[in-house]
Design a protein around this nucleic acid. Sequence first.
DNA 1: CCCTGTTTTAATAACATCATGAAAAAATTA
DNA 2: TAATTTTTTCATGATGTTATTAAAACAGGG
Lengths: 231, 231
Amino acid sequence: MNKILVVDDDPHIREVISFALEKANMKVTLANDGKQALDSFNKSSVDLIVLDINMPEMDGLECCREIRKNSEVPILFLSSRDDEIDRILGLEIGGDDYVTKPFSPRELVARVNVILKRTLSNGINNGINSELKLTHGRLQLDTEQHAIWWDEKEVPLTATEFAMLAQILKQPKRVFSREVIMEGAYQFNIHVSDRTIDSHIRHIRQKFSEVGCESIIETQHGVGYKLASCQ
Amino acid sequence: MNKILVVDDDPHIREVISFALEKANMKVTLANDGKQALDSFNKSSVDLIVLDINMPEMDGLECCREIRKNSEVPILFLSSRDDEIDRILGLEIGGDDYVTKPFSPRELVARVNVILKRTLSNGINNGINSELKLTHGRLQLDTEQHAIWWDEKEVPLTATEFAMLAQILKQPKRVFSREVIMEGAYQFNIHVSDRTIDSHIRHIRQKFSEVGCESIIETQHGVGYKLASCQ
DNA sequence: CCCTGTTTTAATAACATCATGAAAAAATTA
DNA sequence: TAATTTTTTCATGATGTTATTAAAACAGGG
């Protein structure tokens, strides 16, 4: 089940979008403005953001810029003014598509689906949001091949291990609580104990150390895990 | 001289397009519907297809899906309804561009030329449908003959087995989930159990082992299948 | 330095997935 | 229609993965 963060200051529009997306079997989180959106994004796991451009507090473009500092999560812009400038800026700034108001909910859902289909790993693990290929320092990840390399050496991870590392790799600076890792790497609604997460982390570390990488994931005592800073 | 297959149920439109393309020095073949188009495509060599979306029998989208199972031939969609959905779906499904009716013949020819220039100059697709034959290591596949060889020995696969292996062979490094294999190797909208996929994979392996190939498809536990890496 | 709570480690139990053989169901062919 | 091939499903045991547990190691605060 895909998790969509919808950001718009108009409650009515939020309602419409939310309804349409939920009918299309997606899990929706709502935010009123850019600040709330950023907050929510950093506290949970999100596959795609529907982001209105014109908002009080922090507008969509600025919000996008902030998000893009740590994440390549797909963003679908909403623009109420019909002028071209906003659209172009929106795309230039790192959005994946845009819809101009007024829009039909059906169109919005269609576009969301197109983007998700493009970016999600191909049905292999529904719920991992991912670019097809990710490179970070000496690390390289390919969703399509479901494989990950340290330098030239492939690291043989299991499906769950791969999902976790992919998630962490997508926001290299973020510290992930065990709860968020769970949300992101597991099917919707599945719960395991925190110790289980630890266990997987250990296995990932072990496998990486076997190919000569002694530090892949760092522990943030009392908080969670993050990608080792040297990566 | 480039060979264009034009598919539309409206005789008048076929006429207009045909006239325009021939004036632009292309060889045109015509088809009334998706079924005829598939047939014609499989019997001749085509550089590009102009494909109407709304047709009786088999519509453009489904026709495209079928064609995409064996070929990457460029497709230019024609859409009479001006709504966004069709466009998006059309592109999602593996089309190269679209034109909405009513269109000027000149615009259509221009777009055809752009696509041809792009695909021909890649050298990948020398005007001939290059997907017909595939070679990968000791493996050789011929879509036209519907046959596959290991070294010099032909491996007698059934239609379904052939479709699956062809799909896998087209992206040798990719790991295919059973769901994706299903989408790719079966008619649109047909569902079978995951165990059925396994069963076919087993038969493929068996038949290959009978001609001396002990490793043709690898299992990715919890994910799916991929071409064996030694190929 | 000790106490407390957290993380790592390692061993094991529980679980899910896959390969296999056999056999029903469906589609082709004769 | 009968015979044959192909496709699909089911049941089983084998295999590989994941979750849990408990104990040891570690970090931070007084």
